[in-house]
Simulated scan of single mutants.
Amino acid sequence: MTMVEHRMVEVNGVRLHIAEQGEGPLVVLLHGFPESWHSWHRQFGPLTEAGFRVVAPDQRGYGRSDRPADVESYTILHLVGDVVGLIRALGEERAYVVGHDWGAPVAWHTALLRPDLVLGVAGLSVPPPFRGTQPPLAAMEERFGGRFYWNYFARPGVADAEFGRDPRTALRKFFHWASGDAPGSGEDRQPLVDPGRGWLAAMPEPEVQPEWFTEEDLDVLADSFSEGFTGALNWYRNLDRNWELTAPWHGAVVTPPSLYVYGDRDLVPAFPGMPELIAKLPRLMPGLRREPVKLAGCGHWTQQERPQEVNEALVAFLRSCP
């Protein structure tokens, strides 16, 4: 079996670092916040052995990829454009698209906006997009008095400074807090931030690293944020702009074959309105191949916490697509 190889690809005026392995139909793996291509390292082998060509980019603003200075360069249309451009740059006409956390909305929107390019789409943690009636930052500002983490991340320079002071410690605490190993459940861990203290102050220091997130994994991840968190946080600063830009697709649904996987201890599926949406997905999603897959004891870092179960679900789903 070939090794994972790394190179740079120019897409839409930005240079993206990609990791790739294997031959066969293309599968694009899209990471979330605060991650990198490395969050998929346990998926490369199984997907390659199943007969697929696997490519995981550092998305714009992350890792070794370019970090445009303009905040407005991180809208959902730019991010989908990167996926579309990447498929073309890799010499393919169509691909399977899989995303986790922020990568999931990018994957879902790629399928929503360009279904002609998507053989199948899978989202981990974050369910498919159904555009609300008001801008999301404004809605959460009103609901939680500005304490919801989206609003905290959207403030220029604030979370950038907090996470950037000691990236390795910030990442270690954040990954433990949102994992299935942390005490409490998703329902009682709404991500609210005390603006006076910041977010990390409320997160306990884990006594030991979990088996699924080793010191080596932490080293690789911390290194990918050596130039800071601003590019990654700029994604959150476009949430209301994305709501405006996606108005033409209000009420539209994802039509390609699809799969949704989440952990029962993940805080994201417990966000306001999410449980009700997940319950309705089989009726709302014409391409959903099976009931949403709920992983017992799994927190937010789906493919890292439960690699074997996620790999089995992905391989079965990809093989089921025409």
Rank of each mutant, 00 (worst) to 15 (best):
P135E: 06
E141A: 15
R7A: 13
V158E: 09
R172V: 03
P57W: 13
L277I: 11
W199V: 09
T230L: 05
S224I: 10
G198V: 14
F130N: 08
D217C: 03
R197P: 00
Y62F: 15
I18K: 10
L77M: 11
A270V: 03
F44S: 00
G120H: 01
A154P: 08
H38P: 00
V293T: 13
L233V: 12
H38E: 12
D264V: 03
P282F: 12
G120D: 01
E291N: 13
V14Q: 00
R114H: 15
R290N: 07
E5H: 11
P136E: 11
E227Q: 14
R64F: 11
W199T: 07
F144D: 02
R197F: 00
F52C: 13
P128W: 12
P136T: 10
R289A: 11
L233H: 05
G273R: 12
T302F: 07
Y152A: 02
A178D: 00
T110K: 03
P156F: 06
G51H: 13
F44A: 00
V193I: 14
H38I: 12
F130K: 10
S258A: 10
G103K: 03
L47G: 08
G164L: 01
G81E: 00
A202Y: 11
E312H: 13
P272N: 05
D66C: 08
F225R: 03
G132Y: 12
V83F: 04
Y236A: 03
S185W: 09
P127S: 00
T255H: 08
F148C: 09
A154E: 06
P322Q: 14
T214G: 08
L221G: 05
G13N: 06
G123N: 04
M1F: 12
G22I: 07
S125W: 07
R143C: 05
M203E: 01
Y152G: 07
L16G: 03
K173R: 15
H109P: 00
L267M: 13
R172Y: 04
H109V: 03
D188R: 15
Q59T: 15
G45A: 15
L267P: 01
P25V: 01
G63Q: 06
T75R: 14
H41P: 11
L119N: 07
V254W: 08
S226E: 14
E93Y: 03
E72C: 10
D166F: 14
D82S: 07
M3A: 15
W102T: 02
L47F: 03
S224V: 09
L192A: 04
K173P: 04
N234L: 07
H300Q: 01
F175W: 09
T255M: 05
P204R: 06
E187R: 15
Y74P: 01
E305Y: 05
T214C: 04
F271N: 13
T133Y: 09
G120A: 02
V220G: 06
G164H: 00
T302A: 11
N311T: 10
S226V: 04
R168T: 09
T230W: 09
